[in-house]
């Protein structure tokens, strides 16, 4: 700390900014700053997790029902993809610490590759939701007219000019056409039955004890009779939360990819050395944070109530 007192026009190390005395102080500051940023990110996502918690505890069966239609295969694959990208990111920092430029660049490229794969899978999943009428916003689903010939509907729609990716789900539903439900206004639809709530009601009959929560008893029934429309609304709420959470996460991934591109450029230019690699380390923290969010999103969104599927 005695560096203050001496001449302030000492030789500046590369990357040392004027307000700091030495690299140690700068690295400490940048690292604390990054962690404070992550703290605020945790609270930012925390608001969404609170919303999830509240509604999951209110409508557990509708949430399980809705979640069962998410493709846990894609979700699980994406988890693995992100974990691999986290490994490559950790190795990027590892090589940066050793001043190994070439391995650094390779690892950044790998990280970016896996990040892109993640987003690609997300596009496949979102497209499936679009085709199945599971986007909670009216008009944002594939418009399927009342009559047959549904295949051309999307290409005629000027608001959606991109070619659609043929997913497993779409391929399967194209195979047996009767599964395509008309959806002329592109509304949110639920055509996958009420298995979970049926299970709950049968359990109630079996044991004589309440299985549904008090909110569910209000939320799914009209005048004591099960109301599929009200049930659908709760499922719609799950998809709303799903889209907001994964959408915000995907946005963070896109920002992360931007960060990686910048890192790639600077690493390629040989900007970093064993003495100065703080930007690599900080970008790494961000990337791992985004990974951690997904580690929680995967079980909470894709796997809840999976056992209802297996049980039947």
């Amino acid at each position: 700390m005695s560096a203050h007192a001496s001449d302030k026009f000492v030789y500046h190390e590369p990357g040392l900014q004027h307000q700091f005395d030495d690299m140690k102080q700068q690295e400490e500051s940048v690292s604390i700053g990054m962690w404070m940023f992550l703290v605020q990110e945790i609270m930012f996502f925390g608001g969404l997790f609170t919303a999830y918690l509240v509604f999951r505890s209110r409508y557990p069966l509708a949430f399980a029902e809705a979640s069962n239609h998410l493709d846990a295969f894609w979700g699980g694959l994406n988890t693995l993809v992100l974990i691999v990208s986290s490994l490559t990111m950790a190795l990027t920092v590892y090589y940066a610490q050793r001043g190994n430029r070439n391995m650094q660049v390779i690892m950044i490229l790998l990280t970016m590759f896996f990040g892109t794969v993640f987003l690609g899978v997300k596009v496949i999943e979102y497209t499936d939701k679009y085709n199945s009428g599971l986007v909670p916003v009216t008009g944002w689903n594939k418009k399927i007219p009342e009559t047959a010939g549904t295949e051309h509907a999307a290409s005629k729609d000027p608001t959606f000019a991109l070619p659609l990716i043929e997913t497993r789900a779409e391929a399967a539903s194209a195979a047996d056409d009767h599964k395509k439900h008309p959806n002329p206004k592109g509304e949110f639809q639920w055509n996958y039955g009420t298995h979970v709530v049926d299970y709950g009601l049968s359990k109630e009959k079996e044991t004589g004890k309440p299985y549904l929560t008090a909110s569910e008893r209000i939320g799914y029934f009209s005048n004591g009779v099960f109301d599929p429309d009200k049930y659908r609304d709760k499922i719609r709420m799950f998809y709303y939360i799903y889209f907001v959470m994964t959408g915000l996460h995907a946005l963070h991934m896109i920002v992360g990819l931007g960060l990686m591109s910048w890192l790639l450029w600077t690493a390629w230019r040989g900007y970093y050395s064993a003495e100065y690699y703080a930007p690599v380390e900080m970008s790494g923290l961000y990337w791992h944070f985004v990974d951690i969010v997904w580690i929680f999103l995967f079980p909470l969104l894709y796997l809840l109530g999976r056992h209802f599927l297996a049980g039947h």
């Binding site: 990110e41 930012f44 925390g46 209110r58 916003v137 939320g219 719609r236 709420m237 709303y240």
Partner: peptide, 28 residues
């Protein structure tokens, strides 16, 4: 950050006409 996400949810809900704060569909 919590008010940021809250305002964001409000904006999405206002824009998308659906959401978790709408009592009509079971929101709160």
């Amino acid at each position: 950050p919590v008010v940021a996400i809250t305002v964001l949810l409000l904006a999405i809900e206002r824009f998308a006409r659906v959401g978790i704060f709408d009592p009509a569909i079971g929101g709160d």
